[in-house]
Nucleic acid binder design. Structure first.
Lengths: 305, 305
DNA sequence: CCGCGTTAGTTGACTCAGTCCACTAAATAC
DNA sequence: GTATTTAGTGGACTGAGTCAACTAACGCGG
């Protein structure tokens, strides 16, 4: 569960924006269209040939209601419909010239309105606002489909991100205390401080500019590599990123001449364990511990390379 | 007139958010309240003693409509009204205990809804979304006053945040390499690992649920406290947070019986230096170094307590 | 103090956006 | 070939929101 004051702030913003959009939409009162009419007209105007069913889905309308509105639009000569040859139940909607004119007129008014709003801002401010809008949209719009994940080496800030995300995750999920975050900070910090590019590496999985996963290989000496801090963020699970990161580690360790790859984990991390099993690791030992508060079962795994 | 594609993007966002809010507001269908009811109840619940006229103004409602809704609320025992002694035309609206319960229940549901939405996001993304919301609000809402910052002790994830934000900031701003982030991780990690609540502390400045600043006090022994990792995020500068954090440190160090407070900084950090001077620190030594790549001027400062 | 324009709030009368249900026809699953 | 799902439509309704007309209190100028 996210931070409460974060949520309060978001609610506050939503109240504000409800109001703001309400004001903007009042402008449709000058025209014979309701907000819903305008949304439909916009959708039809910008995606020529949509079906009514698609509109119902995208705009979350009642089919009967939409049907009536389309009927009215048809009567007013704004659109024409014809059955879809590929599916005779369905019909494709196309805008007439007059419909297009109306659509564009609505667009002009809407633009003018926003332009008027933006005109009151200082230079650079509209850009800042729009960029913030894009941020929100990318985060909250499920249809703005997530960019594909990529895996790359670590950069400034990434080690901190590892500490933060894991510290927070294990605290929220398993009630581990700050000693765990301390351990992560220690491991990650030492990795960075003594980083040996010839034998060590840090992979960061990133999606749309946001970090969503990580893993480290550190040198334990004696030809043993250690896989550490494997983590995939909640938002990116089920994409096979964990497996991908572990595969990277195995390939890297083999290539750098390590003899063995070892790792330490805790048994409640089922998904991780499944990956270790699948990639050929074997369990060498386990011990119960209370290193971070609640009791847990630490496990050492090993892979011969 | 602003850039056209900027406006198009803003319109696009508005369409998306109209939809988004529409979805959120569907949830009120579970309750006997409409969106308008909920907005009114929220306003009344959070500003006890408002007048109907104020509601009409703030929520842009029809007075007749509001009057009827208030009448209903009164009948249901959610609110009570009494004439305003200062203006007998007007009436003050106060919520009854039952009304407050309802108000809080609505709040809980609304929170849960947003929490559910946020749960699908990656760690750090809710913060990013909310911070973008604040940006928009600050720009578009003439009445918006920035959320007040609060200063609190550290929690899970905060130490990682310190490492990440400073690692990234110094890399971007001054081109410092990963050795700096390693140093921060080391300092922060050791702080957490050896944390002694009797002599040490970490303050996090938070605004609207987003971390915007930090500072640590660590024990250097011999009655010397060390102020470390002072940082205020770009988005929150100019609010005096840096001064506030340093003041906290001084008060804490004095109270815990330290003799001296020392710190290490670099001279290109003008704002920080100004704070140190103002709070009575004196420069004891400086040396040029290349610890993090580019040449810099490290300084040791000291304050007698 | 009186009139006159204004503001706070209320009631009556209405309308029209949006919903629910039942139905037809085509498509798809089994 | 039958059963189930999906696309679209019309009938019937409801209730959120609007508009106009009203009362009562305020406040300003003379």
């Amino acid at each position: 569960m996210s931070n409460l004051s974060l949520i309060e702030t978001a609610r506050d913003f939503n109240r504000f924006y409800t109001n703001f959009l309400g004001l903007l939409n009042k402008a449709y009162l000058d025209t014979p269209f309701t907000l819903t009419d305008a949304r439909i007209l916009f959708e039809v105007g910008s995606h020529d040939g949509v079906s009514a069913a698609a509109l119902v889905r995208d705009l979350q309308l009642d089919p009967a209601y939409l049907s009536r509105i389309l009927k009215r639009f048809r009567a007013e000569g704004l659109i024409e419909t014809s059955p879809d040859p590929a599916d005779l139940r369905s019909q494709v909607i196309i805008v007439t010239d007059q419909g297009r004119e109306t659509f564009e007129e609505l667009g002009r008014r809407s633009n003018a309105q926003i332009a008027a709003r933006f005109d009151r801002l200082a230079s650079g401010e509209p850009e800042a606002a729009v960029s913030a809008m894009c941020t929100i949209r990318a985060l909250l719009d499920p249809a703005a489909k997530p960019a594909p994940a990529i895996i790359r080496a670590h950069r400034a800030g990434d080690i901190g991100w590892i500490v933060q995300s894991q510290g927070r995750f294990y605290a929220e999920e398993y009630g581990w205390d700050l000693r765990f975050e301390a351990l992560v900070a220690d491991v990650a910090g030492k990795f960075l401080a003594n980083f040996d590019p010839a034998k060590e590496y840090c992979w960061i999985a990133e999606r749309g500019g946001v970090n969503v996963g990580s893993v480290l290989i550190t040198n334990s000496g004696d030809g043993v590599a250690k896989l550490r801090l494997l983590y995939v963020d909640k938002s990116a699970r089920g994409l096979g990123l964990g497996k991908l990161l572990v595969d990277e580690c195995i390939r890297f360790s083999w290539q750098k001449g390590y003899r063995e790859l070892s790792l330490w984990t805790n048994d409640m991390l089922e998904t991780a364990r499944a990956i270790y099993v699948k990639t050929g690791f074997r369990l060498v030992s386990e011990e119960r511990h209370r290193m971070f508060g609640p009791e847990a079962n630490g496990q050492n795994w090993m892979l011969d390379l």
